[in-house]
């Protein structure tokens, strides 16, 4: 709230890395799906996001997972994500279901958006299973801008499909297709005739995405009318570290140790580097710094996946290190 004493990021009074979130709520959204609410420890504003955005969440077991944001962006203080227990029952999703508790801390990266909602008078949303999560805020947004939309939502069984209650208010616009009752999604019926006024947003398991793409190509839809986000269980880069690492400033040869509660930007400043910054949220791009050696742990909202993989630059206001040592052109 303006006028209160909480220092804003970018005022130079915040030395602490801004990437820790606290789990403030956990509830069951469906069989094997848990919905989490996350806030900042000080209750402050979270970074801005738009429908289709995901965050990287690093758990106490060191694993990083990507989750689509499915809450309300008009509430700047709470993130909501939903986590499915993966079938192989290992790793991050099992940790969330079995170990994570209200009050625990997780690390935040992003949000980033590879699945933004492009303007269109009409949308067809197709969700498979937990792929419903990015679609929920899209639906809200389509309503806000007065776009016409329909949702085709498939899952194994009704009990395993999250957010059915939330969706019930939309009546006829939503078609729920539990596989054990109704079989596979009737893609042929829904995608049979290409439409110039519709963009199709599809999120779910790989085979669903392939089937939708196949159906649309076959029916003669223009390629840009399909937008997809593939859900993979793949891990993001090297395991993230919560232990200190060293940052070497190549221009002066100075080395500084960065503990878990210090940002690389602040550490570089303490070591005498003049590094211009602005948002200190990983969104504006002002603090972009060339990485000469080491592997950055990207937590910004700017770089695309291939730019992250290149590893030649980073945003030290939020990003950290996967390796013991990071050499920066500072």
């Amino acid at each position: 709230m303006p006028g209160t004493t909480r220092a804003a990021p970018g005022t130079g009074t915040v030395g602490e890395a801004v990437d820790r979130l606290v789990v403030t709520g956990m509830s069951t959204a469906a069989q094997d799906v848990v919905s989490l609410t996350l806030t900042r420890p000080d209750g402050g504003r979270l970074p801005d996001w738009a429908p289709g955005a995901h965050i990287d969440v690093t758990l106490a077991n060191g694993e990083t997972r990507q989750y689509s944001l499915c809450g309300d962006r008009w509430d700047a203080h709470t993130f909501r994500v939903a986590v499915l227990r993966e079938t192989d029952g290992r790793g991050g999703s099992a940790f969330v279901h079995d170990e994570l508790a209200v009050g625990d801390e997780v690390l935040l990266g992003g949000p980033r958006n590879n699945f933004p909602l492009a303007p269109s008078p009409r949308y067809l949303f197709i969700a498979g299973g937990i792929g419903i999560t990015p679609i929920l805020p899209m639906i809200h947004q389509a309503d806000l801008v007065g776009a016409d939309w329909t949702l085709l939502y498939g899952g194994r069984r009704r009990a395993s499909m999250a957010f059915l209650d939330d969706l019930a208010v939309h009546g006829e616009r939503v078609e729920i297709v539990p596989q054990d009752e109704a079989g596979l999604l009737p893609l042929g019926t829904w995608l049979g005739a290409p439409r110039g006024d519709t963009v199709v947003y599809c999120c779910g398991p790989g085979p669903l995405l392939d089937a939708v793409e196949h159906a649309m190509t076959g029916a003669g839809w223009a390629p840009h009318r399909l937008r997809t986000e593939r859900f993979t269980a793949a891990e993001v880069g090297a395991p993230v570290r919560d232990e200190p690492f060293t940052v070497e400033l190549a221009r002066t040869g100075t080395t500084v140790v960065v503990g878990p509660r210090l940002s690389v930007l602040e550490a570089a400043r303490q070591a005498g580097a003049t590094t211009l910054s602005s948002c200190e949220r990983g969104t504006c791009g002002t603090c972009e710094t060339t990485v000469l050696d080491g592997l950055p742990d990207h937590r910004d909202s700017i770089l695309a996946d291939h730019e992250r993989a290149a590893g030649d630059c980073m945003f030290p206001c939020v990003s950290r290190s996967c390796t013991d040592r990071l050499v920066l052109d500072l």
């Binding site: 709230m1 303006p2 006028g3 209160t4 220092a7 804003a8 970018g10 005022t11 504003r45 801005d48 008009w74 700047a76």
Partner: peptide, 12 residues
């Protein structure tokens, strides 16, 4: 500064 900054980021 603190209030202008806080208001500028508070688009809601």
């Amino acid at each position: 500064h603190a209030d202008v900054h806080a208001a500028l980021v508070d688009w809601q």
